[in-house]
Amino acid sequence: MSGLLEITNLTAGYGRIDVLHDLTMTIGAHGNVGLFGPNGHGKTTLLRAISGLVKARSGSIRFGGADIANQTPRSIVGLGLVHSSQGNRLFPDLTIGECLALGAYTPRARAQEEANRERALKIFPKLGERWNQKVRTLSGGERQMVSIGTALMSNPAMLILDEPTLGLAPKVKEELCRAVLDISAGGIPLVVVEQDVEFLLELSQHLYLVNHGQVAAEIKPGQTMGHADIMALYFGQ
C-alpha cells in the first residue's frame, strides 16, 4: 500500500549487541505515529534503521511497497522518507540558507525547492531573518528549527522527527510543538519520538511504546488513552 511504512521482525544493533529484537510495527495506517518509551530502549535506533543509517540484521522494512531495508540513506531520502535526527548538530560552518539548500539535494526535492522553501519559511519565519547566520552560532531551539526546516526541504512524503523538543525551554518548546502541528496539518504524515506524552497525544492517534527493543504496547485510534494510562504503561502496572 502506498504511503505505508511496514516494519516486520526487525533486528538491528551496534557491534555485537542487538538493540531491536524482532520488532514489528505499521506506520501510516492511522495518521501520525507517536513513539515513546524509556531512554535507551531503541527508539532512535529504530528510526536510524528505517532511514538506512543502521543496518537491519534481519527482518524487512517496506515503504510504499518498496523494500528499503539496507538501502542507502540516499535512496531512502530519495523516496521521500525524511529523517530529522535527535540532537542534530547539523553543519556547524554552513549558514541556515546553505543548510536548507542541502536539504533539497535529491532530484525529487530539487524539483520542489521553491515551494518547499516557502513552506519552511512560513512555518519558521525566524530562519528567513537569520538566513546568513552560521549554524554553530544558533541556539538549541533555532538549530532544531533548521533541522526540521532542512527535512522539509527534502520534500517529505513521510517525516520522521526524533525528539524535536528535547532540552528546550518551555516557550521555545511551545513554539516548536505548534510548528510540528502545522506541518502535520499541511498534510505530511509524521513519525515522532517524544518524551512529552501530552504533546504526543495531541499530535498522533496511533502510538507505540518501545521497550527493550520491542513494541510493548500499541494504542490505536478509538482506544481512548489518557495521560494516566500511558504512565501506567510506562512504569508497568
Binding site: 532511514s51 540513506p73 540516499r74 531520502v77 530529522s84 542534530n88 542541502l102
Partner: peptide, 20 residues
Amino acid sequence: GLALRAVAQNEDASLLVGLN
C-alpha cells in the same frame, strides 16, 4: 561544492539529506 564543504562537518546529517 556546498556538498563537498558539508560532508566533513557531519557525516550522518550528510547521509540524511542524500549526499553520496
